[in-house]
Design a protein around this nucleic acid. Structure first.
Length: 314
DNA sequence: ATAATTTGACCAGA
DNA sequence: TCTGGTCAAATTAT
């Protein structure tokens, strides 16, 4: 229990190792990209960035392949589970026009079906910023853990039916570090959003966590770092920024990114076609700061049979 | 005004 | 049961 979900059992340990290594390389490359994007000599950094992107894409591809389960297993899963329509799970409109009217109605809180084995991966980092826009939807005290765990979903969940989620928790023995467990692939696309970023420049050390189940030891020190207001946290803005809005460099980057995305990914609505490996590569990227850069990160990929909601009662 | 977060209720699995 | 993940009303931020 006090642990975040580890790698799927079915992966051989060698495979796991490989994935971890790649993921680490991926992480480092991302950091390099961010670094390089800080305006300086454009010529050089531009080339370097393109290179970093290619490397990243390569990592993503490999991780994706290694992460995917056997086609046999997949089809088994899909056979037994009448796969729901992945897209647009609009069952409530955020909270706007709905008005806060719903008194005697039954409280549907918590009425859901848990997701079946969606793949997850865990990252430890000094920052929770990852280039995606997240919306916090919960926080929990975890048994034997001093630090609460926060739950986030993609801001595009109702917009575009994106099902990516993540859990963030401060490390017990180093509250400056965050352990983030990602789950589900971003299926949202073309997000030219410009969230106001807060991030300072913390050291970007991060590494993949491997231990599926470290017994988080309970230490005795108290740090009152409000985990709720922790760094990360996005912000979604309503106006979509178009590429023309970006600097030249950004435009170029973007073109490249989107090229990659279209080359490898399937459309949001077509996610049901997970045969063998999945090739979504640049899901839900987000430009987090016009001032100093493309703070995007590309995540490994996986298939996912997500949860559905219980319709059994009104 | 709308949008994001907080927080306790609710639920699924172990 | 108990624990952790999610929902949604209430609260706070923008």
């Amino acid at each position: 229990m006090g642990s975040l979900s580890p790698w799927p059992e079915r992966l051989s340990s060698n495979k796991k190792r490989a994935i971890q290594e790649l993921a680490q390389g991926q992480e480092f490359t991302t950091q390099l990209q961010i670094l390089l994007h800080k305006p300086s000599e454009e010529g050089v950094s531009l080339l370097a960035m393109e290179l970093a992107q290619k490397i990243l894409r390569s990592f993503n591809q490999t991780i994706s392949l290694l992460s995917s389960v056997d086609s046999a297993e997949v089809s088994k899963n899909q056979a037994t589970s009448n796969d729901d329509s992945p897209c647009c799970d609009d069952r409530r409109s955020e909270n706007s026009s709905e008005s806060r009217k719903r008194p005697a109605s039954k409280d549907r809180r918590g009425r859901y079906k848990r997701k079946r084995d969606a793949q997850t991966w865990t990252v430890v980092s000094a920052t929770t910023e990852d280039g995606h826009a997240w919306r916090k939807y919960g926080q929990k005290e975890i048994l034997n853990s001093k630090q609460p765990r926060s739950y986030f979903r993609c801001t595009r969940k109702y917009d575009q039916g994106c099902r990516a989620t993540k859990q963030v928790q401060r490390m017990e023995d180093d509250p400056q570090m965050y352990q983030t467990t990602y789950s589900g692939t971003h299926t949202c696309t073309h997000l030219f959003k410009a969230p106001q970023i807060i991030k300072d420049s913390e050291s970007w050390e991060s590494q993949m966590v491997t231990s599926g189940d470290s017994k988080i030891p309970s230490k005795q020190h108290h740090h009152h770092l409000n985990p709720t207001t922790a760094p990360n946290v996005k912000q979604e803005s309503k106006e979509e920024t178009t590429p023309s809005d970006l600097t030249d460099l950004d435009s170029i980057m973007w073109k490249d990114i989107m090229a990659g995305a279209f080359e490898y990914s399937s459309e949001p609505g077509m996610v049901s076609d997970y045969g063998n490996a999945v090739y979504n590569v640049y899901p839900c990227i987000e430009i987090t700061s016009r001032n100093f850069g493309l703070d995007f990160e590309i995540k490994p990929v996986e298939f996912e049979n997500d949860f559905e909601f219980d319709e059994s009662d009104v």
